[in-house]
Write a protein that binds this DNA or RNA. Structure first.
Lengths: 155, 155
DNA sequence: ATTGAAAGAGTCTCAGT
DNA sequence: ACTGAGACTCTTTCAAT
């Protein structure tokens, strides 16, 4: 059940299924969930209209595309008021795919996807270190992804 | 260009576009890229066969679904040989959506999605701390996501 | 709200280039 | 390897429940 919207079990079942496979047809998904394809259609349109479904995305194999290095970078800021300006600079670095403003060890936390280690070095030494306001960074390189999956929205 | 496959510019353009919007029709994507819908179709089938395209996924609004808390957990292991057994235990915790084996500060690094802070506390204190082999953990809570985007595979 | 059927749009196949 | 057209499948609409 949702915090802000009235979603019933069917809505959640549709979302849960399509989070891992958005290619299934309404008719087939309807069969799985014991309703007609038309009902699936109506529900999906409603979920899109309400903004619960933001779209569908192709899921590529990054390694096959030549992106072999995933790393996380913890960022210490000189002053936390610099957050917005630093975030703007970090956005310009295309290898950074995600940035979070965080509590805990770091002020900010970034995820980086690179082709190889030398590209990561370039991001760290050439691009990151030149940004005013960053005190220092800590790099965590992923040697292997154990698993990656969606949130479980149904029990 | 890819490390392991011969992908030309058109392949990469198709992937790049569909990474953010997989709903576009082959005809419309063909228009954008100045080829026929049939060509888009052939390319996509090839990319699927080669495993470059792993599928398409629905992209939900987690906040609207009631998941307000994203956190990262750095995990220190008692011995690094315990990695596989600990990973297996962590997989059972449904709030953990991603686990990486890492170099740097931590042995392992997890991403957690929870409904609220009390659920996060439950994961940390009830579930994580009971796993043998974990020495200690450090929690980084995301206060705000600045941005999240796809890798840029074309210049 | 859900259904089933008809209309419209998209995917898939294939012969031609 | 790309194209365009025909066959097929899926989405979308709608009247009935």
């Amino acid at each position: 059940m949702s915090a802000k919207l009235n979603l019933d079990k069917l809505d959640l079942q549709i979302i849960e299924h399509m989070m891992s496979d958005a290619e299934i047809s309404y008719a087939d998904l309807g069969k799985k969930l014991f309703v007609s394809g038309g009902t699936i259609h109506v529900r999906i349109k409603k979920l899109q209209k309400d903004g619960v479904i933001k779209g569908t995305r192709l899921h590529p194999d990054l390694k096959l595309l030549g992106y072999d290095v995933i790393a996380f970078i913890g960022i210490y800021l000189r002053e936390s008021s610099l957050y917005d300006t630093v975030a703007k600079e970090l956005y310009k670095i295309k290898e950074i795919v995600r940035l979070n403003y965080t509590t805990g060890n770091y002020s900010m936390f970034a995820e980086v996807v690179c082709k190889d280690i030398s590209e990561l070095r370039d991001v760290l030494h050439e691009k990151l270190q030149k940004i005013k306001g960053i005190e220092r960074t800590e790099t965590i390189i992923s040697l292997e992804e154990s698993f990656s999956r969606n949130v479980k929205i149904l029990d």
